[in-house]
Design a protein around this nucleic acid. Sequence first.
DNA 1: CCAATAGTGTCTATCAGACAGTATGTC
DNA 2: GACATACTGTCTGATAGACACTATTGG
Lengths: 216, 216
Amino acid sequence: MIWRDEHGKSLADHERPSVAVDVALLTLPPGGDELGVVLHERTGGHEAGRRALPGTFLHVDRRETLRDAALRALRDKVGVTGREPRQLRVFDAPDRDPRGRVLSVAHVDVVPFALLAGSAAEVVGLGSLPPLPYDHDDVVAAAVAHVRDVYRAGPDPLGLAGEEFTLLELQTVHQAVLGTPLQKDTFRRHVLPGLADTGRTREGTVGKPARTFRRR
Amino acid sequence: MIWRDEHGKSLADHERPSVAVDVALLTLPPGGDELGVVLHERTGGHEAGRRALPGTFLHVDRRETLRDAALRALRDKVGVTGREPRQLRVFDAPDRDPRGRVLSVAHVDVVPFALLAGSAAEVVGLGSLPPLPYDHDDVVAAAVAHVRDVYRAGPDPLGLAGEEFTLLELQTVHQAVLGTPLQKDTFRRHVLPGLADTGRTREGTVGKPARTFRRR
DNA sequence: CCAATAGTGTCTATCAGACAGTATGTC
DNA sequence: GACATACTGTCTGATAGACACTATTGG
């Protein structure tokens, strides 16, 4: 049976675009004071050696969702699992891909730097990004803007700081994400209502040991 | 020439989904105190008589953008032109359309009620929506949430109040959009910085005539 | 004068931001 | 005890929210 729409057309009568997903995966390199982008270097094909955001085509034949495609791209291209990519928007300029009409559903996610150890990921600071293919520069810009918005709402909403952290560690994360320095006492009062004291302290440093917290 | 990706596959080797756009077009019925949704009644086909959001398939063969497809849907299905639809997100549940794999890029826009005069549009208040097909209920919910967010930022960002308005008219619009009553004096001070006094007043009513404003 | 709506002076509670203090650890 | 870092009391200025007053029109 073939379903037809109000003009008597079936789905087969419409030319269909290819649909891809691209993921701007952001992280915080240690010691760095700015966000990093996880790229992968392409091998083979006509774009060998060029770095790009991890991405892939949607596998319609496997009834794959966009989320699953994004997770597959992260796993296969940069060896990262356990993420929760969020849609940013669809990039749909007709000439954005020279191979044909390809819509790209841009996603954003974030990963603690420690989880990248030993993976195929290459992390590049926001300030030293190479030119990226397609509209990946716009994807990164949208991703950074989105993450900054989210981080204005409360303490480490996406878990960049890990499970347990001191207030100074949390402040460092927020400063790197937002790209601006923050005041210690103001920051403390801002985030404290959203945190739970673990009862433990961070020992072994100079100065008074700091209490550690979890997100509530 | 056929471009091949890093696995030696060309675009033709991937099964492609159909891509549709759906638009939640919101308006403010006169006298009403809540947002309305512009629906169109389907004619012919297997869903005749059912009401749905205006939508259409992306015309890949015409190199159409998603924005253009959304504008075309508004023009052809409900007779509305001159809008600026914004993407909400992609709805991609594999079984959302019984005809096959169809991704829907949901859009939102807003239209002054006066511009609907004589069109094929049917406006239904948010509180009295019939069950909508596919995931159109979710689209409407996302659209309303988005418009509410936008209207928290400043005076009538999307132009629902028209060109020129009194503060009371503007307040009525905001109350209907947000679904909550607002305080006269607080509202006034909140929006005044974003308005320009026209120098004119609204005559012919009981009480002191109100000055009219434009958005700045 | 009265009714009705427009517009404003002012009080208060809250909050961001900052300074400068106190507390508690290492060396 | 010196020093470094964690934590906090408190001041200030800005802002949201609300009350109640004044202003200006039509009838």
